[in-house]
Simulated scan of single mutants.
Amino acid sequence: MPDAAIRIPRSTCRLFGAIKALSTLKNTCILVHGPKGCVYHINYILGMRGDRPREIFSTCLNEHDVIFGAEDRLTRAICELDQEIHPDLLVVLSCCASGIIGEDVHAAVRAASVSAPVLAIDSGGFEGDHAEGYRDTLTRIAASLAGSTGHRDPHAVNLLGVLRAGPDLGEIRRILTSAGIRVAAVLTAGTGMADLGRMGDAALNIVLCETSGLGAAEVLLSRFGTPYIVTDLPIGIPATDTFLDTIRSALSLPCPEKSMNPHEPIPPLDPSHRIAIFSGPTRAIALSRFLSGLSNPPRLIVLDFLPPSLEKVAAAAGPGCVILVEPDSGEIRKALAAEEITLVLGGMLERPVAGMLGIRLIDVMHGSQRTVGYEGARILAALIDGEKI
Rank of each mutant, 00 (worst) to 15 (best):
L145I: 07
T191Y: 02
L163Y: 14
L159C: 10
R173P: 04
L159A: 11
D168A: 12
A156F: 06
I172Y: 11
I175E: 07
A131C: 07
R135E: 10
D136E: 13
V162H: 06
S148K: 11
T177F: 09
E127W: 00
H155Y: 12
P154S: 13
E132G: 13
R152V: 14
R164W: 05
D153T: 13
G170A: 15
P154F: 12
L138I: 00
L196M: 15
A185N: 10
R182Q: 14
N158G: 01
T139K: 09
G190M: 01
S144K: 13
D153G: 10
A131S: 08
T139W: 01
T137W: 03
R164N: 09
G197Q: 06
E132T: 11
H151N: 04
L163Q: 15
S144V: 12
T149E: 14
E132C: 08
A156H: 07
G161W: 05
G128E: 01
A142E: 00
S178H: 15
L160R: 04
L169G: 04
F126Q: 10
H151P: 00
G180R: 01
R198Y: 06
T137E: 01
A194W: 12
A156W: 05
A142K: 00
P154V: 10
D201W: 07
D195G: 05
G180P: 02
V162P: 05
S144C: 14
G190A: 02
I141F: 07
R174H: 11
D136K: 11
L160N: 07
